[in-house]
Design a protein around this nucleic acid. Structure first.
Length: 166
DNA sequence: GCCAACGTTGGC
DNA sequence: GCCAACGTTGGC
């Protein structure tokens, strides 16, 4: 059995969408700005290179899973937290004692159309999925292999996917 | 734009 | 350590 793990990570497409990730240099980005301890702990302690990521668009019309990414660098200090000029500055974080951590993501695949939140809610097989539980606002969530596979199948059923370059 | 659900902060 | 006040998230 593989020890590959799976995650769902939220981003507001107005801020940074899956299209942005696909068209960025190297199709890679660092996931800065997470300021929640639970989410931080998962990025710092639990994510491994190669883990699969469902790329979720929040605050979107409609919200939903736009495609896939993968972890290409494991947890390291979020340097935007100690830059006073930066939007994500936190005076309690410093280079000597970093409070916040991030990972690097690489684009993998974009669905022909996103799998909307309402579609996720309609799937009996996805019972217990974090993002469809009321009140769950965590921007980084673990996802079971079964749920991950199921959502990937839903996405691929929408038409030809756009894949990343090697 | 509203507001419910959460998380964090800080006075006591 | 409690908890009220406040700030944020994110669907609708």
């Amino acid at each position: 059995m593989s020890d590959r793990k799976y995650w769902l990570m939220k981003s507001e497409p107005d801020v940074y969408s899956l299209d942005d990730l696909r068209t960025d240099e190297g199709q890679t980005t660092y996931w800065e700005g997470v300021r929640n301890y639970q989410a931080r702990n998962m990025m710092r302690d639990d994510m491994r290179v190669g883990d699969g990521v469902l790329y979720y668009h929040s605050n979107a019309k409609p919200p939903g899973v736009a495609g896939l990414a993968e972890i290409v660098r494991e947890g390291y200090p979020d340097f935007t937290s100690w830059d006073p000029e930066h939007h994500y500055f936190d005076p309690k974080s410093s280079e000597e004692s970093p409070r916040w951590f991030m990972v690097d993501l690489r684009f993998v695949e974009q669905f022909a159309d996103l799998v909307s939140l309402s579609e996720l809610k309609e799937e009996a097989d996805l019972d217990g999925l974090g993002v469809i539980r009321k009140g769950n606002r965590l921007s980084v969530q673990p996802v079971s292999a079964e749920h991950y596979d199921h959502i990937v199948a839903m996405g691929r059923a929408k038409g030809p996917v756009v894949t990343g370059k090697d």
